[in-house]
Design a protein around this nucleic acid. Structure first.
Lengths: 222, 222
DNA sequence: TCAATTCTTGACCGGACAGTCAGCTTTTCC
DNA sequence: GGAAAAGCTGACTGTCCGGTCAAGAATTGA
Protein backbone atom coordinates (compact mmCIF):
# COMPACT_ATOMS: atom_id res chain seq x y z
CA UNK A 1 0.00 0.00 0.00
CA UNK A 2 2.83 2.48 0.33
CA UNK A 3 3.14 2.04 -3.45
CA UNK A 4 0.90 5.07 -3.87
CA UNK A 5 3.83 7.32 -3.04
CA UNK A 6 5.35 9.11 -5.97
CA UNK A 7 8.90 7.83 -5.97
CA UNK A 8 8.09 4.12 -6.02
CA UNK A 9 6.37 4.39 -9.36
CA UNK A 10 9.62 5.41 -10.98
CA UNK A 11 11.03 2.35 -12.75
CA UNK A 12 14.48 1.66 -11.34
CA UNK A 13 16.72 -1.38 -11.52
CA UNK A 14 16.14 -3.48 -8.43
CA UNK A 15 12.75 -1.91 -7.84
CA UNK A 16 10.87 -5.13 -8.53
CA UNK A 17 13.19 -7.12 -6.35
CA UNK A 18 12.80 -4.73 -3.44
CA UNK A 19 9.04 -4.46 -3.72
CA UNK A 20 8.40 -8.17 -4.00
CA UNK A 21 10.98 -8.91 -1.32
CA UNK A 22 9.15 -6.64 1.08
CA UNK A 23 5.80 -8.09 0.15
CA UNK A 24 7.03 -11.58 0.82
CA UNK A 25 8.68 -10.59 4.10
CA UNK A 26 5.49 -8.97 5.28
CA UNK A 27 3.38 -12.00 4.46
CA UNK A 28 6.00 -14.30 5.95
CA UNK A 29 6.08 -12.39 9.23
CA UNK A 30 2.34 -12.79 9.53
CA UNK A 31 2.30 -16.49 8.73
CA UNK A 32 5.30 -17.33 10.90
CA UNK A 33 3.66 -15.44 13.75
CA UNK A 34 0.42 -17.34 13.39
CA UNK A 35 1.81 -20.79 12.81
CA UNK A 36 5.43 -20.84 13.95
CA UNK A 37 8.30 -21.93 11.74
CA UNK A 38 7.26 -25.55 11.48
CA UNK A 39 3.58 -24.83 11.05
CA UNK A 40 4.01 -22.18 8.38
CA UNK A 41 3.89 -23.30 4.76
CA UNK A 42 5.48 -21.65 1.78
CA UNK A 43 2.18 -22.06 -0.07
CA UNK A 44 0.33 -20.08 2.59
CA UNK A 45 2.94 -17.31 2.58
CA UNK A 46 2.76 -17.19 -1.20
CA UNK A 47 -1.04 -16.88 -1.11
CA UNK A 48 -0.93 -14.03 1.37
CA UNK A 49 1.71 -12.27 -0.68
CA UNK A 50 -0.37 -12.78 -3.81
CA UNK A 51 2.45 -14.57 -5.61
CA UNK A 52 2.95 -18.11 -6.88
CA UNK A 53 4.96 -20.32 -4.58
CA UNK A 54 7.82 -20.81 -7.00
CA UNK A 55 8.34 -17.08 -6.92
CA UNK A 56 9.16 -17.18 -3.22
CA UNK A 57 11.93 -19.61 -3.94
CA UNK A 58 13.23 -17.26 -6.60
CA UNK A 59 13.70 -14.51 -4.00
CA UNK A 60 14.52 -16.63 -0.95
CA UNK A 61 16.12 -19.97 -1.72
CA UNK A 62 14.64 -21.91 1.18
CA UNK A 63 12.03 -21.55 3.89
CA UNK A 64 14.78 -21.23 6.46
CA UNK A 65 16.44 -18.44 4.51
CA UNK A 66 13.16 -16.56 4.38
CA UNK A 67 12.66 -17.12 8.09
CA UNK A 68 16.11 -15.77 8.86
CA UNK A 69 15.40 -12.68 6.77
CA UNK A 70 12.20 -12.11 8.76
CA UNK A 71 14.11 -12.48 12.02
CA UNK A 72 16.83 -10.08 10.89
CA UNK A 73 14.26 -7.38 10.29
CA UNK A 74 12.76 -7.96 13.70
CA UNK A 75 16.02 -7.86 15.63
CA UNK A 76 16.91 -4.51 14.14
CA UNK A 77 13.51 -3.21 15.24
CA UNK A 78 13.91 -4.73 18.66
CA UNK A 79 16.99 -3.02 19.93
CA UNK A 80 16.40 0.59 18.99
CA UNK A 81 14.01 1.91 21.68
CA UNK A 82 16.42 0.99 24.47
CA UNK A 83 18.56 3.93 23.39
CA UNK A 84 16.40 5.99 25.72
CA UNK A 85 18.37 4.59 28.63
CA UNK A 86 21.47 6.75 29.02
CA UNK A 87 23.55 7.70 32.08
CA UNK A 88 22.44 11.27 32.44
CA UNK A 89 18.83 10.91 31.37
CA UNK A 90 16.17 11.36 33.99
CA UNK A 91 15.35 7.78 35.06
CA UNK A 92 11.60 8.32 35.21
CA UNK A 93 11.53 9.94 31.79
CA UNK A 94 13.86 7.41 30.21
CA UNK A 95 11.93 4.44 31.57
CA UNK A 96 8.64 6.01 30.57
CA UNK A 97 9.91 6.50 27.04
CA UNK A 98 11.26 2.96 26.86
CA UNK A 99 8.20 1.21 28.22
CA UNK A 100 5.90 3.32 26.09
CA UNK A 101 7.91 2.51 22.97
CA UNK A 102 7.92 -1.21 23.77
CA UNK A 103 4.17 -1.26 24.32
CA UNK A 104 3.66 0.73 21.15
CA UNK A 105 5.70 -1.89 19.31
CA UNK A 106 3.50 -4.61 20.81
CA UNK A 107 0.45 -2.77 19.54
CA UNK A 108 1.64 -1.95 16.04
CA UNK A 109 3.89 -4.94 15.31
CA UNK A 110 2.35 -7.87 17.21
CA UNK A 111 3.43 -10.33 14.53
CA UNK A 112 7.06 -9.35 14.89
CA UNK A 113 6.84 -9.90 18.62
CA UNK A 114 5.26 -13.29 18.15
CA UNK A 115 7.87 -14.50 15.70
CA UNK A 116 10.56 -13.43 18.13
CA UNK A 117 8.82 -15.14 21.04
CA UNK A 118 8.38 -18.30 19.05
CA UNK A 119 12.04 -18.36 18.17
CA UNK A 120 12.97 -17.98 21.88
CA UNK A 121 10.51 -20.59 22.95
CA UNK A 122 12.00 -23.20 20.69
CA UNK A 123 15.61 -22.73 21.57
CA UNK A 124 16.63 -19.69 19.54
CA UNK A 125 18.71 -21.82 17.19
CA UNK A 126 18.75 -19.11 14.52
CA UNK A 127 19.71 -16.22 16.81
CA UNK A 128 21.92 -17.81 19.43
CA UNK A 129 24.85 -15.68 18.37
CA UNK A 130 22.78 -12.52 18.45
CA UNK A 131 21.71 -13.29 22.00
CA UNK A 132 25.13 -14.26 23.26
CA UNK A 133 26.96 -11.38 21.60
CA UNK A 134 24.98 -8.30 20.52
CA UNK A 135 22.17 -8.57 23.04
CA UNK A 136 24.45 -9.53 25.89
CA UNK A 137 26.72 -6.56 25.23
CA UNK A 138 23.73 -4.27 25.04
CA UNK A 139 22.31 -5.56 28.30
CA UNK A 140 25.69 -5.24 29.99
CA UNK A 141 25.82 -1.62 28.88
CA UNK A 142 22.31 -0.74 29.93
CA UNK A 143 22.60 -2.63 33.20
CA UNK A 144 25.69 -0.55 33.96
CA UNK A 145 23.70 2.60 33.31
CA UNK A 146 20.94 1.48 35.64
CA UNK A 147 23.47 0.38 38.24
CA UNK A 148 24.81 3.92 38.02
CA UNK A 149 21.36 5.29 38.71
CA UNK A 150 21.08 2.99 41.71
CA UNK A 151 24.49 3.98 43.04
CA UNK A 152 23.53 7.63 42.72
CA UNK A 153 20.33 6.98 44.65
CA UNK A 154 18.22 7.96 41.66
CA UNK A 155 16.36 4.63 41.61
CA UNK A 156 15.78 2.14 44.40
CA UNK A 157 18.13 -0.84 44.76
CA UNK A 158 17.43 -3.52 42.17
CA UNK A 159 19.08 -6.08 39.91
CA UNK A 160 19.25 -4.21 36.62
CA UNK A 161 19.13 -7.36 34.48
CA UNK A 162 16.03 -8.74 36.17
CA UNK A 163 14.49 -5.30 35.90
CA UNK A 164 15.10 -5.27 32.15
CA UNK A 165 13.72 -8.80 31.84
CA UNK A 166 10.66 -7.62 33.67
CA UNK A 167 10.11 -4.74 31.26
CA UNK A 168 10.51 -7.07 28.28
CA UNK A 169 8.29 -9.76 29.71
CA UNK A 170 5.50 -7.37 30.63
CA UNK A 171 5.47 -5.30 27.46
CA UNK A 172 5.76 -8.22 25.07
CA UNK A 173 3.09 -10.10 26.98
CA UNK A 174 0.45 -7.85 25.43
CA UNK A 175 1.47 -8.92 21.93
CA UNK A 176 2.43 -12.54 22.53
CA UNK A 177 -0.42 -13.48 24.88
CA UNK A 178 -2.98 -11.14 23.43
CA UNK A 179 -5.57 -13.92 23.29
CA UNK A 180 -5.29 -14.43 27.01
CA UNK A 181 -5.42 -10.70 27.72
CA UNK A 182 -8.45 -10.26 25.49
CA UNK A 183 -10.37 -13.21 26.85
CA UNK A 184 -9.71 -12.28 30.45
CA UNK A 185 -10.55 -8.62 29.90
CA UNK A 186 -13.61 -9.61 27.85
CA UNK A 187 -12.50 -7.74 24.75
CA UNK A 188 -12.82 -8.90 21.18
CA UNK A 189 -9.79 -6.84 20.23
CA UNK A 190 -7.43 -4.55 22.10
CA UNK A 191 -8.13 -1.03 20.92
CA UNK A 192 -5.90 1.99 20.99
CA UNK A 193 -7.82 3.05 24.09
CA UNK A 194 -7.16 -0.28 25.76
CA UNK A 195 -3.48 0.16 25.07
CA UNK A 196 -3.51 3.69 26.45
CA UNK A 197 -4.98 2.37 29.67
CA UNK A 198 -2.56 -0.54 29.77
CA UNK A 199 0.38 1.77 29.18
CA UNK A 200 -0.61 4.02 32.06
CA UNK A 201 -1.07 1.11 34.44
CA UNK A 202 2.07 -0.73 33.40
CA UNK A 203 4.08 2.48 33.74
CA UNK A 204 2.71 2.97 37.22
CA UNK A 205 3.79 -0.52 38.22
CA UNK A 206 7.22 -0.38 36.64
CA UNK A 207 8.09 3.08 37.89
CA UNK A 208 7.02 2.11 41.37
CA UNK A 209 9.07 -1.08 41.10
CA UNK A 210 12.06 1.18 40.44
CA UNK A 211 11.20 3.24 43.49
CA UNK A 212 10.21 6.24 41.40
CA UNK A 213 7.28 8.35 42.63
CA UNK A 214 4.05 8.08 40.68
CA UNK A 215 3.69 11.23 38.70
CA UNK A 216 0.06 11.55 37.68
CA UNK A 217 0.11 12.68 34.06
CA UNK A 218 -1.18 16.25 34.26
CA UNK A 219 -0.63 18.65 31.37
CA UNK A 220 2.52 20.48 32.36
CA UNK A 221 3.72 23.65 30.72
CA UNK A 222 7.39 23.19 31.41
CA UNK B 1 11.44 -44.21 37.05
CA UNK B 2 8.91 -43.97 39.86
CA UNK B 3 8.18 -47.62 39.06
CA UNK B 4 10.56 -48.55 41.89
CA UNK B 5 7.87 -47.81 44.42
CA UNK B 6 6.20 -50.82 45.97
CA UNK B 7 2.62 -50.37 44.94
CA UNK B 8 3.20 -49.99 41.22
CA UNK B 9 4.71 -53.45 40.93
CA UNK B 10 1.46 -55.02 42.00
CA UNK B 11 -0.30 -56.23 38.86
CA UNK B 12 -3.68 -54.57 38.71
CA UNK B 13 -6.16 -54.14 35.90
CA UNK B 14 -5.55 -50.82 34.23
CA UNK B 15 -2.02 -50.63 35.53
CA UNK B 16 -0.45 -50.92 32.09
CA UNK B 17 -2.77 -48.36 30.65
CA UNK B 18 -1.99 -45.86 33.38
CA UNK B 19 1.75 -46.38 33.27
CA UNK B 20 2.06 -46.14 29.51
CA UNK B 21 -0.35 -43.25 29.39
CA UNK B 22 1.80 -41.29 31.82
CA UNK B 23 4.96 -42.20 29.99
CA UNK B 24 3.55 -40.96 26.71
CA UNK B 25 2.22 -37.77 28.28
CA UNK B 26 5.59 -37.01 29.79
CA UNK B 27 7.42 -37.54 26.51
CA UNK B 28 4.77 -35.57 24.65
CA UNK B 29 5.06 -32.59 26.98
CA UNK B 30 8.78 -32.48 26.31
CA UNK B 31 8.50 -32.76 22.55
CA UNK B 32 5.60 -30.32 22.25
CA UNK B 33 7.59 -27.85 24.36
CA UNK B 34 10.67 -28.17 22.18
CA UNK B 35 8.98 -28.18 18.79
CA UNK B 36 5.47 -26.80 19.20
CA UNK B 37 2.38 -28.65 18.05
CA UNK B 38 3.13 -28.47 14.34
CA UNK B 39 6.82 -29.25 14.73
CA UNK B 40 6.36 -32.22 17.02
CA UNK B 41 6.13 -35.65 15.43
CA UNK B 42 4.44 -38.72 16.78
CA UNK B 43 7.57 -40.70 15.88
CA UNK B 44 9.73 -38.45 18.05
CA UNK B 45 7.35 -38.66 20.97
CA UNK B 46 7.24 -42.44 20.58
CA UNK B 47 11.04 -42.64 20.59
CA UNK B 48 11.31 -40.57 23.75
CA UNK B 49 8.67 -42.68 25.42
CA UNK B 50 10.46 -45.84 24.34
CA UNK B 51 7.42 -47.21 22.54
CA UNK B 52 6.57 -47.92 18.91
CA UNK B 53 4.59 -45.21 17.20
CA UNK B 54 1.53 -47.35 16.62
CA UNK B 55 1.26 -47.77 20.35
CA UNK B 56 0.74 -44.05 20.84
CA UNK B 57 -2.27 -44.22 18.58
CA UNK B 58 -3.62 -47.07 20.61
CA UNK B 59 -3.67 -44.88 23.75
CA UNK B 60 -4.39 -41.52 22.13
CA UNK B 61 -6.28 -41.74 18.88
CA UNK B 62 -4.73 -38.70 17.22
CA UNK B 63 -1.91 -36.23 17.72
CA UNK B 64 -4.44 -33.55 18.59
CA UNK B 65 -6.03 -35.77 21.22
CA UNK B 66 -2.64 -36.35 22.80
CA UNK B 67 -1.91 -32.63 22.70
CA UNK B 68 -5.18 -31.84 24.42
CA UNK B 69 -4.40 -34.36 27.13
CA UNK B 70 -1.04 -32.68 27.70
CA UNK B 71 -2.71 -29.27 27.90
CA UNK B 72 -5.34 -30.55 30.35
CA UNK B 73 -2.63 -31.65 32.72
CA UNK B 74 -0.93 -28.29 32.48
CA UNK B 75 -4.03 -26.18 33.07
CA UNK B 76 -4.78 -28.04 36.26
CA UNK B 77 -1.24 -27.33 37.42
CA UNK B 78 -1.48 -23.71 36.40
CA UNK B 79 -4.33 -22.47 38.49
CA UNK B 80 -3.57 -23.89 41.89
CA UNK B 81 -0.92 -21.56 43.35
CA UNK B 82 -3.17 -18.52 42.98
CA UNK B 83 -5.17 -19.82 45.92
CA UNK B 84 -2.68 -17.94 48.09
CA UNK B 85 -4.52 -14.72 47.21
CA UNK B 86 -7.42 -14.41 49.66
CA UNK B 87 -9.19 -11.36 51.13
CA UNK B 88 -7.79 -11.55 54.61
CA UNK B 89 -4.31 -12.81 53.84
CA UNK B 90 -1.42 -10.45 54.40
CA UNK B 91 -0.78 -8.99 50.93
CA UNK B 92 3.00 -9.17 51.19
CA UNK B 93 2.90 -12.77 52.36
CA UNK B 94 0.28 -13.83 49.85
CA UNK B 95 2.11 -12.25 46.92
CA UNK B 96 5.41 -13.66 48.09
CA UNK B 97 3.90 -17.13 48.25
CA UNK B 98 2.30 -16.76 44.82
CA UNK B 99 5.33 -15.39 43.02
CA UNK B 100 7.60 -17.94 44.65
CA UNK B 101 5.29 -20.77 43.61
CA UNK B 102 5.09 -19.50 40.04
CA UNK B 103 8.86 -19.21 39.75
CA UNK B 104 9.26 -22.64 41.29
CA UNK B 105 6.90 -23.98 38.64
CA UNK B 106 9.03 -22.31 35.96
CA UNK B 107 12.08 -24.01 37.39
CA UNK B 108 10.68 -27.48 37.84
CA UNK B 109 8.20 -27.66 34.96
CA UNK B 110 9.68 -25.52 32.20
CA UNK B 111 8.24 -27.77 29.50
CA UNK B 112 4.73 -27.30 30.79
CA UNK B 113 5.19 -23.56 30.72
CA UNK B 114 6.49 -23.67 27.17
CA UNK B 115 3.62 -25.76 25.88
CA UNK B 116 1.20 -23.32 27.44
CA UNK B 117 3.06 -20.34 25.99
CA UNK B 118 3.11 -21.92 22.57
CA UNK B 119 -0.60 -22.52 22.70
CA UNK B 120 -1.22 -18.86 23.61
CA UNK B 121 1.14 -17.60 20.97
CA UNK B 122 -0.71 -19.39 18.21
CA UNK B 123 -4.18 -18.33 19.09
CA UNK B 124 -5.15 -20.70 21.93
CA UNK B 125 -7.53 -22.60 19.68
CA UNK B 126 -7.60 -25.60 22.02
CA UNK B 127 -8.18 -23.65 25.24
CA UNK B 128 -10.29 -20.70 24.17
CA UNK B 129 -13.13 -21.83 26.38
CA UNK B 130 -10.83 -22.31 29.34
CA UNK B 131 -9.57 -18.75 28.96
CA UNK B 132 -12.93 -17.15 28.43
CA UNK B 133 -14.69 -19.05 31.20
CA UNK B 134 -12.58 -20.65 33.96
CA UNK B 135 -9.63 -18.29 33.78
CA UNK B 136 -11.74 -15.19 33.37
CA UNK B 137 -13.85 -16.10 36.41
CA UNK B 138 -10.73 -16.77 38.42
CA UNK B 139 -9.15 -13.48 37.43
CA UNK B 140 -12.38 -11.62 38.23
CA UNK B 141 -12.33 -13.18 41.68
CA UNK B 142 -8.71 -12.48 42.41
CA UNK B 143 -8.87 -8.98 40.97
CA UNK B 144 -11.73 -8.31 43.36
CA UNK B 145 -9.59 -9.49 46.25
CA UNK B 146 -6.75 -7.22 45.22
CA UNK B 147 -9.14 -4.31 44.65
CA UNK B 148 -10.25 -4.91 48.23
CA UNK B 149 -6.66 -4.64 49.39
CA UNK B 150 -6.30 -1.40 47.48
CA UNK B 151 -9.52 0.02 48.88
CA UNK B 152 -8.34 -0.84 52.39
CA UNK B 153 -5.07 0.94 51.73
CA UNK B 154 -3.12 -2.29 52.17
CA UNK B 155 -1.51 -2.03 48.72
CA UNK B 156 -0.89 1.01 46.55
CA UNK B 157 -3.40 1.91 43.84
CA UNK B 158 -3.10 -0.34 40.81
CA UNK B 159 -5.08 -2.12 38.12
CA UNK B 160 -5.37 -5.61 39.57
CA UNK B 161 -5.64 -7.33 36.18
CA UNK B 162 -2.52 -5.70 34.79
CA UNK B 163 -0.77 -6.51 38.03
CA UNK B 164 -1.67 -10.18 37.65
CA UNK B 165 -0.57 -10.14 34.01
CA UNK B 166 2.70 -8.68 35.17
CA UNK B 167 3.26 -11.48 37.66
CA UNK B 168 2.47 -14.10 35.02
CA UNK B 169 4.61 -12.48 32.37
CA UNK B 170 7.61 -12.08 34.62
CA UNK B 171 7.53 -15.48 36.27
CA UNK B 172 6.85 -17.45 33.11
CA UNK B 173 9.54 -15.52 31.29
CA UNK B 174 12.20 -17.51 33.12
CA UNK B 175 10.85 -20.74 31.69
CA UNK B 176 9.70 -19.63 28.26
CA UNK B 177 12.64 -17.37 27.40
CA UNK B 178 15.24 -19.30 29.34
CA UNK B 179 17.62 -19.25 26.39
CA UNK B 180 17.61 -15.48 26.38
CA UNK B 181 18.02 -15.27 30.13
CA UNK B 182 20.89 -17.75 30.06
CA UNK B 183 22.73 -16.14 27.15
CA UNK B 184 22.41 -12.65 28.59
CA UNK B 185 23.42 -13.75 32.08
CA UNK B 186 26.24 -15.84 30.61
CA UNK B 187 25.02 -19.08 32.15
CA UNK B 188 24.97 -22.48 30.52
CA UNK B 189 22.04 -23.51 32.68
CA UNK B 190 20.00 -21.78 35.35
CA UNK B 191 20.85 -23.45 38.65
CA UNK B 192 18.82 -23.63 41.79
CA UNK B 193 21.04 -20.82 43.09
CA UNK B 194 20.30 -18.68 40.05
CA UNK B 195 16.62 -19.17 40.68
CA UNK B 196 17.00 -18.28 44.34
CA UNK B 197 18.63 -15.02 43.33
CA UNK B 198 16.03 -14.37 40.64
CA UNK B 199 13.21 -15.06 43.08
CA UNK B 200 14.58 -12.58 45.60
CA UNK B 201 15.02 -9.86 42.97
CA UNK B 202 11.70 -10.44 41.27
CA UNK B 203 9.95 -10.38 44.63
CA UNK B 204 11.62 -7.11 45.46
CA UNK B 205 10.38 -5.58 42.21
CA UNK B 206 6.86 -6.92 42.43
CA UNK B 207 6.32 -6.08 46.07
CA UNK B 208 7.60 -2.59 45.46
CA UNK B 209 5.32 -2.29 42.43
CA UNK B 210 2.45 -3.04 44.82
CA UNK B 211 3.70 -0.36 47.18
CA UNK B 212 4.72 -2.89 49.81
CA UNK B 213 7.85 -2.17 51.81
CA UNK B 214 10.91 -4.26 51.05
CA UNK B 215 11.34 -6.68 53.87
CA UNK B 216 14.92 -7.98 53.79
CA UNK B 217 14.67 -11.72 54.45
CA UNK B 218 16.20 -12.09 57.90
CA UNK B 219 15.59 -15.24 59.96
CA UNK B 220 12.69 -14.28 62.19
CA UNK B 221 11.61 -16.25 65.23
CA UNK B 222 7.99 -15.19 65.19
C1' DT C 1 -6.94 -74.20 31.77
C1' DC C 2 -8.99 -71.47 28.49
C1' DA C 3 -11.72 -67.93 26.45
C1' DA C 4 -12.22 -62.94 26.41
C1' DT C 5 -10.10 -58.84 26.72
C1' DT C 6 -6.39 -55.84 26.46
C1' DC C 7 -2.18 -54.63 24.56
C1' DT C 8 1.61 -54.60 20.94
C1' DT C 9 3.76 -53.69 16.55
C1' DG C 10 5.77 -53.92 11.65
C1' DA C 11 4.22 -52.77 7.40
C1' DC C 12 1.70 -49.98 4.80
C1' DC C 13 -1.05 -45.78 2.72
C1' DG C 14 -2.34 -41.24 1.19
C1' DG C 15 -1.80 -36.50 1.60
C1' DA C 16 0.92 -32.46 2.38
C1' DC C 17 4.85 -29.98 1.78
C1' DA C 18 9.70 -27.95 0.46
C1' DG C 19 12.15 -27.53 -3.23
C1' DT C 20 13.32 -27.98 -8.56
C1' DC C 21 13.28 -26.90 -13.29
C1' DA C 22 12.55 -25.76 -18.02
C1' DG C 23 10.51 -22.69 -20.71
C1' DC C 24 8.40 -18.41 -20.87
C1' DT C 25 7.75 -13.06 -20.33
C1' DT C 26 9.32 -8.62 -18.94
C1' DT C 27 12.74 -5.25 -18.03
C1' DT C 28 17.13 -3.17 -18.70
C1' DC C 29 20.64 -0.95 -21.17
C1' DC C 30 23.32 -0.02 -25.18
C1' DG D 1 15.58 -2.22 -31.90
C1' DG D 2 17.67 -6.11 -29.93
C1' DA D 3 20.51 -8.86 -26.96
C1' DA D 4 21.31 -9.85 -22.22
C1' DA D 5 19.69 -9.98 -17.75
C1' DA D 6 16.12 -10.37 -14.48
C1' DG D 7 11.81 -12.04 -13.26
C1' DC D 8 7.92 -15.50 -13.51
C1' DT D 9 5.45 -19.87 -12.97
C1' DG D 10 2.93 -24.51 -13.87
C1' DA D 11 4.07 -28.93 -13.39
C1' DC D 12 6.66 -32.19 -11.16
C1' DT D 13 9.38 -34.96 -7.44
C1' DG D 14 11.02 -37.11 -3.20
C1' DT D 15 10.36 -37.11 1.54
C1' DC D 16 8.17 -36.96 5.74
C1' DC D 17 4.41 -37.72 8.64
C1' DG D 18 -0.23 -38.90 10.75
C1' DG D 19 -2.95 -42.49 10.82
C1' DT D 20 -4.54 -47.55 9.81
C1' DC D 21 -4.64 -52.39 10.17
C1' DA D 22 -4.27 -57.19 10.72
C1' DA D 23 -2.04 -60.58 13.05
C1' DG D 24 -0.15 -61.92 17.11
C1' DA D 25 1.37 -61.65 22.36
C1' DA D 26 0.25 -60.85 27.06
C1' DT D 27 -3.05 -60.31 30.71
C1' DT D 28 -7.25 -61.05 33.03
C1' DG D 29 -10.90 -63.53 35.34
C1' DA D 30 -13.58 -67.69 35.74
Amino acid sequence: MPSSSIATDTPLPGRIRRENGERILKAAELVFAEAGFAGATMADIADRAGLPKANLHYYFGTKEELYRAVLDNILRLWLSPIDAITPDADPAKALTAYVTAKLEASRTRPHASKVFANEMLHGATQIERFLAEDLRRLVDDKAAVIDGWVAAGRVAPLDARQFLFMIWAVTQHYADFDVQVRKVMGRRTLTRQDFAHITAEVLRLILRAAGLPDTPPHPSNA
